[in-house]
Design a binder for these strands. Structure first.
Lengths: 120, 120
DNA sequence: CCCTTGACCTGGAGTTGCTCCAGGGAGCTA
DNA sequence: TAGCTCCCTGGAGCAACTCCAGGTCAAGGG
């Protein structure tokens, strides 16, 4: 499939996909005779994973590391597992941040409610 | 208090605080006779709020908007409320992203577990 | 009294991770 | 044959910091 479809399916913009390919976190995508990229379902699956990792705050550097391990093959499975488990910890911390922010917002909103009561 | 203490208390780096002041999302901070910034507890409270808003993804533009409303005084309370409620919605969406990412990670990890079982 | 140390100042360059754009080609269709 | 759409590349621009050079001032030690 072409880049536009890969973009829709993965969630990444076409520009971002090309940028990721340049950066080496996506393997060099096969080209058709016309020079256009042809994405395989595996390519799209990889892009989708990257989409979620990036969306939840993994750095390019870590994704590059992950991609490098992936390229090395089955020998690196446990390292990749560790990396993903590390990211799962990050998710926990992010959730705690959201919780705390929600509290802060609730306090502020309570104050604003009182102010509105006074100046209606 | 000096900027280092304001930094510790708010969570923002000194550089970021100065940058925010330049950008107008923090009011011009009073200076002592020595030319150094002196932060009031109110300043720190504001910085702390900004810290949480920023940390959970509010853009500078929105924070500038919020700051502008704040400067206009009590007349804008309901607009500020709306802005914070909007951000609370953002938090919900972010939490959904974390949930989805966790699912994706769980799938990948399950696959890796199987692979490890085969090549122990 | 002088000198070092440390916290702060400003202005500006560098970084990350995109995003947009100019300029150009290939294929379809009317 | 022109117009349309989709793709390509290289490079500029942007957000939100972060770091650094070069300078000021106050306090403390020798």
């Amino acid at each position: 499939m072409l880049i536009s479809e890969a973009s829709i399916r993965s969630g990444l913009s076409a520009d971002t996909i090309r940028y990721y390919e340049k950066s080496g976190i996506v393997p060099a995508i096969d080209r058709g005779a016309d020079g256009l990229r042809r994405f395989s379902p595996e390519n799209v699956e990889w892009l989708t994973l990257l989409y979620w990792l990036r969306k939840t705050g993994m750095s390019m550097k870590d994704m590059q590391c992950f991609a490098a391990l992936y390229r090395e093959g089955g020998r690196t499975v446990s390292e990749r597992k560790a990396l993903l488990l590390g990211h799962a910890e990050t998710l926990k911390r992010k959730r705690a941040d959201l919780d705390r922010c929600e509290e802060v917002l609730a306090e502020k909103l309570a104050i604003y409610d009182k102010l509105e009561g006074k100046h209606p």
